[in-house]
Write a protein that binds this DNA or RNA. Structure first.
Lengths: 134, 134
DNA sequence: GTAGTGTATTATATCACTTAATACACCTAA
DNA sequence: TTAGGTGTATTAAGTGATATAATACACTAC
């Protein structure tokens, strides 16, 4: 429940999922949504671990995955920085969105739910929006 | 990779996810899609465990969840049967679809992706379909 | 040199998942 | 009644992912 602010980052950590995964997801989201600026300095591994009351190894695991995503760059002895490339962020967004989309469609298919039914659900969830394909 | 048939049920089991979860998902899907008939007798816990080369406790865990879903009924001493109520199956379908939908929309929101962008992705994935809301 | 970075290693603990062995309660059919 | 098939419960054990803790090393800026 308790939301923490560390620099321009906000964190909500609980025990429903692995800690490193929550840190990873929330930083990913902040970068994807532009809540933290391109090229900005990330909190250091030790600092973030201290603030979140979590082991440094746990933070490092999240940071390593962020670099694999191409969302951050590490400079030994200096720190971790958000990538300066808007293209990389955009590429990450589309790739992850595509994965989310595929697994969602697979779930719906396993229930025998067609595309038109999905569209129907979408309309119900957003009754006020006209929808992009209408 | 190896797909197994047990009665009218088909199973593909690997080690990417918990075994009980895979069994659960695949039986759910079979019932939701009508691949196994309403009121049909399910394989017994011991039989399915033997066929899938899995511990009976693991199968039982999946079966217990199926009953919680309202998709099966157990008759002590007789066996496990698929529910005879088409309404229950339909209810389950809509409830689970709604959950899938919500968590999907949450994922997309975490990437800062709007509804109209989602509609765009849908059109790309299904270029030949007209779509139910058009 | 000092302090702050990321990184690596080793040990330990906990929990979810799975298997295994066994026993019990219930129902059906011979 | 007996035998065999149901679901259920319990106890024990092993494995792997997750997390913590303590420590050390390499690099960089000041």
């Amino acid at each position: 429940m308790e939301e923490q602010k560390i620099g321009s980052l906000r964190f909500k950590i609980d025990f429903s999922q692995p800690l490193y995964e929550q840190i990873l997801d929330q930083v990913r989201s902040a970068i994807a949504k532009g809540e933290i600026e391109l090229g900005a300095k990330m909190p250091s591994v030790r600092e973030l671990a201290l603030e979140l009351r979590v082991n440094p190894n746990t933070v490092m695991r999240a940071y390593q995955e962020l670099e694999r995503d191409g969302l951050t760059e590490k400079r030994r002895g200096q720190g971790t920085y958000v990538t300066s490339s808007a293209e990389r962020v955009q590429l990450f967004r589309t790739e992850l969105a595509s994965k989310y989309m595929d697994s969602f469609l697979e779930q719906m298919a396993s229930l025998g739910i067609s595309l038109s039914e999905i569209q129907g659900y979408l309309s119900k969830k957003y009754p006020n929006e006209t929808g992009g394909t209408r």
